[in-house]
């Protein structure tokens, strides 16, 4: 960067909008931003034209950049728990799918079914969709077929403690033929209403095991 540009950049620091709270940026808006500290080269590639690239002989001063993207949904539009899960859904389900495929190589020839356990039906559908795609991306065979329980089973299982309920449901899936010998079920579970993490369990041949 030449001296003129350096001086211009220093002066522009006063008029350019800074993502930090200040005269032109409210705290509320600033908190809507997801930011990362990156190198100048990465910033130039990701935001062409917005940052002067490094000169061929380097810059007079080392520079860095803070790249910010505004969250699509403002705080308050979704429940905090849903927002916490949905805002990092791709990362979470990719990890779960990778764990399922790597921890249970014995199920590699099975067809996977996915069942989410989350209080919100809408969020459950999102989790199931994303998990199926993540399993497919890891090379697994996946089916859209649902696993079902009889009304009586549901009545009994929903009264059980979580540590017993999931194995019991798994046994019933196998017993009623809903989950066949060639199938495996990946359950994505929110175990506690106050947590923001998702857990995974696998049901195959009527046996349940927690993955994480």
């Amino acid at each position: 960067m030449n001296p003129f540009a350096l001086l211009a950049a220093a002066l522009l620091a006063y008029v350019r909008p800074d993502p930090a709270p200040g005269l032109l940026m409210s705290k509320e808006r600033s908190r809507q931003l997801e930011c990362a500290v990156v190198t100048t080269q990465a910033a130039v590639e990701r935001r062409p034209g917005q940052l002067a690239p490094e000169g061929s002989r380097g810059d007079m001063a080392d520079r860095g950049a803070v790249l910010c993207s505004e969250r699509l949904l403002r705080a308050g539009l979704r429940a905090p728990r849903d927002e916490a899960i949905l805002s990092t859904l791709e990362l979470r389900v990719s990890e779960l799918a990778a764990t399922a495929v790597s921890v249970r190589p014995d199920l590699s020839d099975r067809t996977w079914r996915v069942e989410p356990f989350h209080p919100s039906a809408q969020v459950s559908a999102k989790i199931a969709f994303a998990t199926k795609n993540a399993l497919m991306a890891h090379g697994a065979a996946v089916s859209d077929r649902l696993v079902t329980l009889a009304a009586g089973d549901v009545d009994v299982i929903t009264r059980m403690a979580p540590d017993l309920a999931y194995p019991a449901a798994c046994a019933r899936y196998a017993a009623n033929g809903s989950l066949g010998e060639g199938d495996a079920l990946l359950a994505v579970v929110l175990r506690d209403p106050l947590e923001t993490a998702l857990h995974a369990g696998v049901c195959a041949d009527g046996r349940w095991s927690w993955l994480r």
Binding site: C35, V66, A75, P80, R81
Partner: peptide, 21 residues
């Protein structure tokens, strides 16, 4: 002095830090 959360610090939180969690 102003503080700006960059990542992670502004994630939504469900627990109440003053409750016996």
């Amino acid at each position: 002095t102003v503080y700006q959360p960059l990542s992670g610090l502004q994630q939504p939180v469900v627990v109440d830090p003053t409750a016996p969690n």
